[in-house]
């Protein structure tokens, strides 16, 4: 089955992973900007990172006929440095018209601090001024519930935001309902230990239905599994769900959400011919 991984950090993966993902049916992916494992020291560090995301990763993906898209921001972990964050936010527009840039993300909270909230709001302001879609990171573990609720408060407080153009990622059992009730899209991240398993993601599909729900691997430099979406597909099949429902969640839903971005020009895999 063809699928689309809506959240995967391919800069952290080797080229062999692109080949494996292509063999397993991955035809498209979107890659949000995130934390590199260390705090970057200057705006030029981010400029180089954005070049990697918009130039080299798209090329590397095309070698395996995978269509690569990306999102730009300074992540919540580095948002404690408010002055650097503001320099990065001011620089982001240089890249917003590049092919494959879908919007601002993954912005959000990490430890739910005041500075993180300030920079989150300033990212929202940029997205509204430039008419971009938004992809949101919610915190991990004990910070998730509080942080998700704070993020929803800030989003709902800004009347300019079209909720159908916002994806709130890393939802789990205690946060999914609030996200969907407010009309946002919700992403379930299949990630060992700290997020969600394929079986629990299937449970949430059964409990809430497939409307505005996505699944992703968030494959990155940590202990993660870039092939987690195929694991979810298998878990759905073993639970007895029809192929049409699975396809809706892993292929049609991502295309529906991303199609709201002006730089999303997806070619169905049957006719896709990447430039070599």
């Amino acid at each position: 089955m063809y699928y689309f991984d809506p959240h995967i950090h391919m800069v952290s993966r080797v080229t062999d992973d692109y080949e494996t993902l292509a063999k397993m049916g991955c035809v498209g992916m979107s890659e949000p900007a995130f934390w590199a494992g260390f705090d970057r020291g200057s705006v030029d560090g981010f400029r180089d990172y954005f070049r990697q995301l918009t130039e080299f990763e798209a090329k590397r993906a095309s070698w395996y006929r995978v269509q690569h898209y990306t999102w730009l921001c300074i992540n919540a972990k580095e948002a404690e440095n408010v002055s650097l964050s503001r320099e990065v936010i001011a620089m982001i527009p240089e890249f917003l018209d590049r092919p494959g840039v879908l919007g601002i993300g993954e912005i959000g909270l990490n430890k739910n601090t005041k500075n993180e909230s300030i920079i989150f709001c300033e990212h929202l302001d940029l997205a509204m001024k430039t008419d971009e879609q938004i992809l949101i990171h919610t915190p991990h573990l004990e910070d998730k519930y509080q942080g998700t609720r704070m993020i929803l408060d800030m989003l709902c407080d800004d009347s300019r935001i079209d909720h159908s153009r916002v994806l709130v990622d890393h939802v789990e059992e205690h946060t999914i309902r609030a996200v969907l009730d407010e009309g946002f899209w919700a992403g379930m991240t299949l990630y060992p230990v700290s997020k969600c398993t394929p079986e629990r993601a299937v449970d949430m599909i059964e409990m809430y239905g497939p409307e505005r729900l996505l699944v992703n691997s968030a494959g990155d430099w940590g202990p993660s599994k870039p092939t987690a979406v195929p694991d979810f597909i298998l878990a759905m099949r073993l639970r007895g769900h029809p192929e049409s429902l699975i396809r809706r969640v892993v292929y049609e839903n991502p295309l529906k959400f991303f199609s709201q971005s002006r730089n999303f020009h997806f070619t169905p895999p049957e006719v896709y011919q990447p430039a070599v």
């Binding site: 004990e142 910070d143 998730k144 519930y145 509080q146 609720r149 789990e172 205690h174």
Partner: peptide, 9 residues
């Protein structure tokens, strides 16, 4: 159980 392991909001 998720709420047991969550900070208050």
């Amino acid at each position: 159980i998720q709420h047991v392991f969550s900070r208050p909001y």
